[in-house]
Design a protein around this nucleic acid. Structure first.
Lengths: 146, 146
DNA sequence: TCTTACTTGAGAAGTATTATCAAAATCAGT
DNA sequence: ACTGATTTTGATAATACTTCTCAAGTAAGA
């Protein structure tokens, strides 16, 4: 059994929830999907492969992943929430291309350290943060110059 | 006439729009409101003071403020968009208390510089960015410990 | 196996925001 | 100030995304 599956199972047991085939199927599809997938996109992807699982269940299950620590919800400007696997993944931030929706992840320890400093100066206990840089990626910049 | 009023007027003239009493009233209320006000909150605030301006017009006008460079739209996790005056205000980021919704603004040039560096390394042309730290403010921390 | 409690799919409902449209208001040119 | 063209307005419908509701189905534990 994969580690993600184990984590989900332990969360399910701990909270007196139930292991269902729908949840396994959605986890499998989620692990298979591209990072930053939306509920709608995951639903379509599964449907195209013959699944009959409803959209509401996909939403419910993605939220379950978030509460079990497997995933995190992100929102980048466009209305849709996106979900990304965070288990065993270091914290990172995002560069988002407004032309082609490319999302690049990056890590920067110096920025993290400065954030901690700012929080301390304001007597804040920070539980999460997000940093997003919006702009145009190199590919789209090339296209624009032609 | 205040500077903000002038800026709005020049945007209106430039784009062949019309100066209306509704727009003046909303601008006045906006300048008077707390920072990071939502459309709904601004609408209620005005209504409570006797205004009969519709919610749709408040939304439209806040968007107008954004395109004229007076304001910027922000989204902090909860579904609502918030608007903040940006004219003559330096760029800044936010600390958000999840307990009491307190929002603290801060500026940090070192972080800004590091962001530029990251963008450069990824050949990104950044047009905007946002950094938000979510957590618990000092007041709420105090309350929790009692 | 039985019972209880959780989960499911379908569609209704909710939330935040934008679109539609007829009536009213503003602007530019006289 | 008058007029006509164009924009703006308020009310409400529509939209987009997500959660809720509920009856029927299913898993877990005694």
């Amino acid at each position: 059994m994969e580690k993600e599956e184990e984590l989900l199972k332990s969360h399910i047991t701990k909270h007196h929830l139930k292991a269902t085939k729908e949840r396994s199927a959605i986890l499998k599809a989620f692990l298979d999907s591209e990072r930053h997938v939306s509920a709608e996109a995951l639903y379509r992807q599964m449907k195209d492969e013959g699944s009959t699982i409803g959209l509401a269940t996909v939403y419910r299950t993605l939220n379950l992943f978030c509460s079990s620590g497997l995933a995190e919800q992100r929102r980048f400007g466009d209305g849709q929430a996106r979900y990304e696997l965070t288990y065993n993944v270091d914290h990172h931030d995002h560069l988002i291309c407004k032309e082609c929706d490319l999302i690049i992840e990056f890590e920067n320890d110096e920025i993290e350290a400065l954030q901690k400093k700012v929080a301390k100066e304001n007597n804040f206990k920070v539980s999460s943060h997000r940093l997003e840089l919006y702009g145009v990626c190199s590919e789209c910049l090339k296209e624009k110059s032609t």
